[in-house]
């Protein structure tokens, strides 16, 4: 039986020794913070024109996470490349020859990438929050306000879970191109469009990103049948399902 720490160490070497790791994680951070800051500044500049209803429902924390819908795409790319890079290059055969316990290999890989995504997610969410609040000026909130710390912390968890979901899907599809071709349009367009269509919304609110994003709201909005943690739980179920599927595919299929 391969030693778990040895395999974790090996996977850490793998993930740190390819360039895509740094650029995807830095992009996720930069895009989320920059877009969040930009939109916060825009809100401040146009505050006078906003209808009173919007002003009443204003969520300063969530506004600073406005960059998340773009930044998450970079994390999806990270998740896809961590798993898919093994298949597209043929490295998977070397990896499995070294660690034939397929579950151990997948678990170590997911654990290492998840740890990186968690650190990136937390750094990104807290930075995006403080940068956003700086641009919001008078309308800024603080971590001490109700629900804000949970939203900021939750945003970091959201980024982590979306990365894990991408890894699970890629482990099932075994191809980075196919995985990106499905995940990118889904999370960038399909999910948010469906969530805006009245009837489709009933289903779309259970999509991983729609359900998970609820935790980033400090001020409850909409009529979702779940709370912030409930939504994150739904997202976590998606992640578990995707990873379980990925594990089964890895276990059953020839490499």
């Amino acid at each position: 039986m391969a030693s778990a720490t040895a395999v974790l160490q090996s996977e850490w070497t793998k993930v740190r020794s390819v360039r895509s790791t740094v650029w995807t994680l830095v992009t996720a951070f930069a895009v989320t913070v920059a877009v969040g800051g930009g939109i916060s500044a825009l809100v401040t500049a146009t505050w006078g024109d906003a209808p009173p209803a919007d002003r009443a429902m204003f969520d300063a924390a969530q506004t600073s996470f406005s960059g998340m819908f773009l930044g998450q795409l970079a994390l999806i790319v990270f998740g896809v490349l961590v798993i898919g890079g093994e298949y597209s290059t043929g490295m998977i055969r070397s990896s499995l020859a070294a660690v034939p316990q397929r579950g151990v290999l997948l678990a170590a890989k997911v654990a290492v990438a998840t740890a990186l995504a968690l650190v990136t997610g937390m750094v990104t969410s807290f930075t995006a929050f403080f940068v956003g609040q700086a641009f919001l000026g008078q309308r800024a909130t603080t971590l001490a306000e109700e629900g804000v710390l949970r939203a900021v912390f939750g945003a970091g968890l959201y980024m982590t879970l979306i990365t894990m979901f991408a890894m699970g899907v890629t482990a099932m599809l075994r191809s980075p191109m196919l995985s990106l071709g499905i995940l990118m349009p889904f999370f960038f367009l399909v999910s948010s469009i469906l969530a805006a269509v009245p009837k489709a919304k009933e289903v779309a609110q259970y999509f991983p990103d729609q359900a998970g994003a609820r935790i980033m709201q400090a001020v409850p909005m909409g009529d979702a049948p779940y709370g912030p943690w409930g939504g994150l739980g739904i997202m976590a179920l998606w992640v578990v399902a995707a990873l379980a599927g990925g594990y089964l595919v890895l276990k059953k299929r020839d490499a």
């Binding site: 895509s20 890079g85 290059t89 043929g90 490295m91 055969r93 070397s94």
Partner: peptide, 9 residues
Amino acid sequence: LDAKAVHGG
């Protein structure tokens, strides 16, 4: 096995 079982990056 085959020389390409390597991540080129």
